[in-house]
Amino acid sequence: MSARIDARFKLLAQEGRAGLVTFLTANDPDYDTSLAIMKSLPKAGADLIELGMPFTDPMADGPAVQASSQRALKAGATLKKTLSLVREFRAQEKDTPLILMGYYNPIYIYGVDKFLTDAKAAGVDGLIVVDLPPEEDEELCIPALKAGLAFIRLATPTTDDKRLPAVLKNTSGFVYYVSITGITGAAIPDPNRVTSAVARIKRHTKLPVAVGFGIKTAADARVIASGADAVVVGSALVETIRNSLDGAGRATEKTLKAVTDLVTELAGGVHSARRAAAE
């Protein structure tokens, strides 16, 4: 349950367009740049924001997101700082939903109850925790729902019709369809397959479906957006950060603009798509 996520998808539906979800890793390449980028995202065209919680061992992520996590950790990232970024972002931006995405161990070590309290207070709307399948719902999903945070689940090509109800049971906010079997930033998904997969998921739920993994360009985003409620782009954005850094891995004056330019471009692609299967 999250008012901001629900309101945002309602607005997108009213406008008859798909949304753009941007993924960036918190504290990449440093705290201040990360905050500046976050603050610029809504204006650049991001409809929802996913903020990665850096982790040393991101098992489901490809090289681009792995590297962004390592940059962030090198710059001193902690879960506490991630929440602080959210707090500062939320002080300025009231409407754009913010979802934390990552792996369970840092949350477990922070303490589940304390984390949920602090995340809610900071202005987090939902959580995506990659290594918590429905089989482990007691760990964080159920407590998160009780605390008023959405728990967004990943559905994948391996999630068949028999398993979908279990995956969707405690899912809220939206469903994140992982368009390929693979890691983030890998192959570009086949649009036809994605469209039929989204339709399949929609037979089981009224929740909006966002599609991610492997979408890199405005053209990709437009094609996928025609069959989904939202499109998630991550690896392409963190790669853009990487390409804008100086030799020592520090942000340059190009960094912020490079990211916002790409977001604007992607938003153009997403927003121009006709929503077909999503209706």
């Binding site: 489901a60 990659v130 399948p133 429905p134 559905a155 994948t156 391996t158 992982v178 079997t181």
Partner: peptide, 9 residues
């Protein structure tokens, strides 16, 4: 079983 959904099945 703390794995990504892709692996769960």
């Amino acid at each position: 079983r703390f794995v990504a959904e892709t692996l769960m099945p």
